[in-house]
């Protein structure tokens, strides 16, 4: 190979390498649009336990007698987990509506809400309702009645009371039947406003608001 040819090859190799490097550097950091519109965003995000809607009855003494002692549960409940309707209106116009259920095949896991709505920047009236769809009411009173303290004995002593307390605790931990959020907000361009469920106050509230 002549030296002129060698030089030409080195030059072409250098040019090609530089072009390849620049193409690689460019292609690896191409600024691509992500949120091209200046819209703001209202984000609803929370998780909570759905209510359990149960119909309970107290078993009679004869029914209990037919069962082995470890299965003598005095109150038997049958039911399902509640589902909810979530609706958002912005400036009086519906922005979205959906049904929310607990996770899992039987919907017995906590429910998770994550909804996002693009909203033009500026001041807007936001109205959010989250309410149970089922009309049937829980039969919590079924736990209260007449299982006298001391009715269960031995290692089963106090079982009916414990079950009633557990039922009440679950009802308390569940999300309320109806939640509502109604206010006017100022939305800044490309900023997210987050609405969440405050489990302590048992209410919807803006994230970061006191």
């Amino acid at each position: 190979m002549s030296s002129a040819h060698r030089l030409a090859r080195v030059a072409s190799a250098a040019v090609m390498t530089i072009v390849a490097i620049m193409a690689l550097a460019r292609a690896t950091a191409l600024p691509l649009a992500y949120h091209p519109s200046p819209a703001a965003r209202l984000r609803l995000s929370f998780s909570a336990r759905p209510e359990r809607i149960e119909v309970c009855r107290t078993l009679s003494a004869e029914e209990l007698a037919q069962r082995p002692e470890h299965m003598r549960q005095r109150v038997e409940c049958d039911g399902k987990f509640a589902s909810y309707r979530l609706r958002i209106d912005v400036d009086g116009r519906p922005a979205g509506e959906s049904v929310v259920r607990g996770a899992g095949l039987r919907h017995d896991r906590p429910l998770y809400v994550l909804r996002e709505y693009d909203i033009p920047p500026g001041r807007h009236a936001v109205h959010v309702t989250f309410e149970r769809r089922e009309q049937t009411d829980d039969d919590a009173e079924a736990f209260a009645p007449a299982v006298a303290v001391g009715a269960d004995t031995g290692i089963f002593a106090g079982r009916a009371q414990r079950e009633a307390a557990e039922h009440a605790r679950r009802a308390e931990a569940a999300i309320p039947k109806r939640l509502q959020f109604d206010t006017t907000l100022v939305f800044a361009p490309r900023r997210v406003t987050l609405l969440t469920f405050d489990a302590e106050r048992r209410a919807l509230r803006l994230f970061g608001a006191l």
Binding site: A27, T28, L32, A33, A39, R191
Partner: peptide
């Protein structure tokens, strides 16, 4: 809480 208008993307 910020919606980036654009981001660098590695297209490779």
């Amino acid at each position: 809480f910020t919606l980036a208008e654009r981001t660098p993307v590695d297209l490779v």
